[in-house]
């Protein structure tokens, strides 16, 4: 009996321990998400958050309207380009940083993080100063006589992708560099002792062993890309709107249910792409589970 009540107390203690974080998760994450989901099935209202009628029209619009298709496709291609650039540049940088002595590596990684301490708004304006019609690039091109009228570098797919990429790159570098640095040097030697040249050592050993870092880096980059707003707005302008801009526009025109529905479209995109990244990289294989 004594041990029974002790076990009971222990169970309560365990519950008490997990309850606060669980509660926080419920109150600040699950409940808002569920209510947002509920809102997304309602008709819009000019005076209330949503009208009383239930409707699927917002989801139907997102799924069938060619305008939304254009924006979704654009959002996905921006994400893909940023992912590809971050992967190549980030991995290469991390590959150089990883073998350095820990102190030096930390210092250089910190240096990479410094730009993250500057607000995205400031950095976007920095890009505007460089890419704008009166910006650095155009000024140089004009002064050298290569162009007469300024080029439209901003408000383009390239400007948004490049601007976002520079923001995301440090996340990729840090997570890959940490993954690479934690790979035991013996694995590379083992591969070489088994006739693998440096290229094949990379393909068959280093790359798969770094896949958890690559996966977490790519997830971070993609999710941050999907939710980035300021950079997209400032560098993309109204011509290069992505899905997140439409959430903002819908809120700005008091169509909360449509905004909620687009948010869920974003969430679904995030889940699908995350799943794809995990399926392609299979980071769990490093744990020896297929």
């Amino acid at each position: 009996m004594a041990s029974g009540s002790f076990r009971l107390t222990r169970r309560w203690a365990a519950f008490a321990l997990v309850a606060p974080p669980l509660l926080v998760f419920l109150v600040f994450f699950v409940v808002p998400l569920v209510s947002l989901f509920w809102v997304s099935f309602h008709a819009p209202s000019q005076s209330e958050l949503y009208g009383p009628e239930l409707t699927l029209e917002h989801y139907a619009t997102i799924l069938t309207d060619p305008f939304y298709h254009t924006i979704i496709l654009r959002t996905l291609s921006t994400g893909a380009v940023i992912l590809a650039l971050c992967l190549v540049l980030g991995y290469a940088t991390a590959y150089v940083l990883a073998p350095l002595p820990p102190r030096k590596r930390l210092l250089l990684l910190l240096l990479l993080v410094v730009p993250l301490m500057v607000s995205n708004v400031v950095r976007a304006y920095g890009w505007i100063a460089i890419l704008g019609r009166q910006g650095l690039v155009n000024a140089v091109l004009r002064d050298t006589g290569l162009i007469e009228r300024p080029l439209l570098l901003l408000n383009s797919f390239e400007a948004v992708s490049f601007g976002l990429m520079t923001i995301m790159l440090p996340y990729m570098v840090i997570s890959v560099a940490n993954a690479l640095a934690s790979i035991d040097a013996q694995y590379k030697e083992a591969a070489q002792s088994l006739r693998a040249d440096p290229v094949r050592t990379f393909i068959h050993v280093t790359w798969p062993l770094s896949s958890p870092g690559v996966a977490s880096g790519m997830l971070l980059v993609f999710l941050l890309t999907l939710s980035a707003y300021v950079t997209i707005t400032l560098l993309g302008g109204p011509r290069m709107k992505l899905l997140v801009s439409l959430v903002f526009d819908s809120v700005g025109s008091f169509r909360w249910p449509l905004a909620a529905a687009i948010s869920f479209a974003l969430l679904v995109m995030a889940l699908i792409v995350s799943g794809l990244i995990m399926a392609l990289l299979r980071p769990q294989r490093v744990q020896g589970r297929g």
């Binding site: 305008f67 109204p238 025109s253």
Partner: peptide, 18 residues
Amino acid sequence: AAKRAEWTDRWNRIISAG
């Protein structure tokens, strides 16, 4: 004010969908 939502949409379709 009443048209704001509709016009935002139409505006976006002209300017952003290009």
